[in-house]
């Protein structure tokens, strides 16, 4: 029996030849009408803002290293970077999936509302800063001030965390497998429940990582900053 599903059309952009503006214009204005769902991007050469602001179910494969803000504000699309990402990868993502196969620079997943950000390598400082509901899975380690003021969502760290992890956390939850150099203000270790282990197992499976959820520790807010204490003399 013939396969009646339409075959998704592929379009390739080579940024050594095609302009970044043409690529993003195509993704924003023309790809849906043209029936193109698969986009291959070659020679990104560290360019900024590749595949930003997408709002359709595309599969974007970027072959090389990218600069600032790759897949920022992403909605619905799956964006894979076969290389490293500059600052602000998947910043303010709304939904969909962004996968960085190498390392990610500062502020990966900053203020992301939804979707899944997977970083196979390390993430630099401020990963998941002000997270608002997305999930982040880091295969390696994260730099200092990660999850600073994170409001909702989950961050799974398979390696270590540097200083001030989870400083001023709200309702976001961090699962960390390795060593934590220091916790930030109002962050604390909590015991893992079956729900936590199931959440870690699911996020690891979605990210293609094979760690045992039992190896992870939970970090969440002690909530002592939720209310202003005049007597605390600014010491928390």
């Amino acid at each position: 029996m013939a396969n009646l599903r339409p075959v998704p059309k592929t379009r390739e952009f080579d940024l050594s030849r095609d302009s970044l503006r043409d690529l993003n214009l195509f993704l924003h204005k023309h790809a849906v009408d043209a029936g193109v769902a698969q986009i291959e991007v070659r020679n990104p050469a560290g360019a900024h803002s590749i595949a930003c602001g997408l709002d359709a179910h595309f599969d974007v494969q970027i072959h090389g290293h990218v600069g600032y803000y790759v897949a920022g504000m992403n909605k619905h699309a799956a964006v894979t970077v076969h290389g490293n990402a500059g600052p602000g990868a998947a910043e303010n993502m709304m939904s969909g999936r962004v996968h960085i196969r190498g390392f990610a620079s500062t502020a990966a997943g900053a203020s992301a509302h939804g979707g899944l950000l997977v970083i196979d390598g390390d993430a630099s400082l401020r990963c998941g800063i002000s997270l608002k509901g997305a999930d982040i899975v880091v295969g390696g380690s994260v730099g200092s001030f990660s999850a600073f003021m994170a409001q909702a969502g989950r961050i799974v760290i398979c390696g270590d965390a540097e200083d001030a992890l989870g400083d001023s956390l709200y309702e976001a939850v961090i699962y960390v497998r390795g060593k934590v150099r220091s916790l930030g203000a109002d962050a604390r270790f909590e015991s893992m429940t079956d729900t936590d282990r199931a959440a870690v197992k699911s996020l690891l499976a979605q990210s293609g990582l094979a760690h045992d959820p039992a190896e992870f520790k939970r970090v969440a807010s002690a909530k002592s900053l939720y209310h202003w204490h005049a007597d605390a003399n600014q010491e928390y």
């Binding site: 050469a45 560290g46 360019a47 900024h48 090389g64 290293h65 600069g67 600032y68 490293n84 500059g86 190498g102 390392f103 620079s105 630099s124 400082l125 730099g143 200092s144």
Partner: peptide, 21 residues
């Protein structure tokens, strides 16, 4: 930024890293 390094010979075989604080 990497975009200033992308043209260098053998860049695809280079060890790339960001200096830690």
């Amino acid at each position: 930024e990497f975009r200033s390094l992308a043209h260098l010979p053998q860049i695809s075989d280079a060890i790339l890293f960001e200096p830690k604080p």
